[in-house]
């Protein structure tokens, strides 16, 4: 679960006050809003890259507001993929595990497993230079998922892709959500992307958050699940 309670963030003259929303465990939250409305700022606060003035951030029931990004256990995919240009695809996908002192053989196994899931096995020994936009995002996704994070944060991951690649990536993201059950927060401008993927829509408008559960999140009775009852 991702829960944000009364979050207050200041960045220069820009400020966001009293932001609260929840994404249930295993849910796919899509955060939408105009350019400059503070979507990325909220995402960065959740990841731990931005100082929070007030409020709390809870991931999987744990208060992480004051924790360093390294210990929050969040997979992060930025807009342009942010490839490590001096590492091969396999090396960057295994970095999180190498840092966690996972044995080399296990790292290789995990990287191969992810590469198969993402369809990038043929790219493993290549450097990021020359990879297409779609390939870069798959690598970034693999890198973020490598250590089996409970939470995945995607910052406009498909915005630079063409229509066809975007559709493929959408179905890939949907597939990953179903297979891994990772709780996801996805920032986008694209309503089609949001409609395809979201089961929890969060709209940021004039510094206010409007949350809406979509039918995809409905339980067996067909009723949307109240977020509170899903807290884990």
């Amino acid at each position: 679960m991702i829960a944000v309670e009364g979050l207050c963030i200041r960045a220069g003259s820009f400020r966001l006050e009293d932001i609260s929303f929840q994404i249930p465990t295993g849910g796919y939250g899509v955060l939408m809003g105009k350019t400059g409305s503070g979507k990325t700022t909220i995402l960065e606060s959740i990841i731990g890259l931005r100082h929070v003035v007030a409020g709390r951030i809870l991931l999987c029931g744990r208060d992480v507001t004051r924790l360093k990004p390294a210990v929050r256990g969040i997979g992060y995919v930025p807009q342009d993929g942010a490839m490590f240009s001096k590492m091969t695809v396999a090396e960057q996908m295994g970095l999180a595990l190498t840092i966690r002192r996972v044995p080399d053989a296990a790292v290789k196994l995990r990287v191969r497993e992810l590469a198969e899931l993402l369809g990038i096995t043929h790219l493993l020994e290549r450097r990021p230079q020359g990879l297409s936009g779609g390939e870069r995002q798959r690598v970034a996704l693999g890198r973020a998922l490598s250590f089996r994070p409970g939470v995945l944060c995607l910052d406009e991951p498909l915005s630079a892709l063409d229509e066809e690649t975007r559709a493929q990536m959408c179905s890939l993201l949907d597939d990953i959500r179903q297979r891994t059950g990772v709780t996801t927060l996805h920032i986008t401008h694209n309503t089609h992307e949001a409609d395809t993927l979201a089961d929890c829509m969060i709209r940021l408008k004039d510094g206010q958050v409007h949350r809406q559960l979509l039918p995809r999140a409905a339980d067996d009775t067909g009723q949307p699940i109240p977020a509170a009852s899903q807290a884990s």
Binding site: E44, I47, G48, L49, K68, P69, A70, V71, R72, I74, G75, Y76, P78, D80, A82, M83, F84, L95, A96, I99, R100, A140, R143, A144, S146, F147
Partner: peptide, 22 residues
């Protein structure tokens, strides 16, 4: 790009590790 470093931090690196590795 500072994003590379931020990604490294989210992957579990300390500041020094992000600096050294990325």
């Amino acid at each position: 790009d500072p994003r590379c470093e931020q990604v490294a931090l989210s992957l579990g690196c300390s500041r020094a590790q992000a600096f050294g590795w990325v």
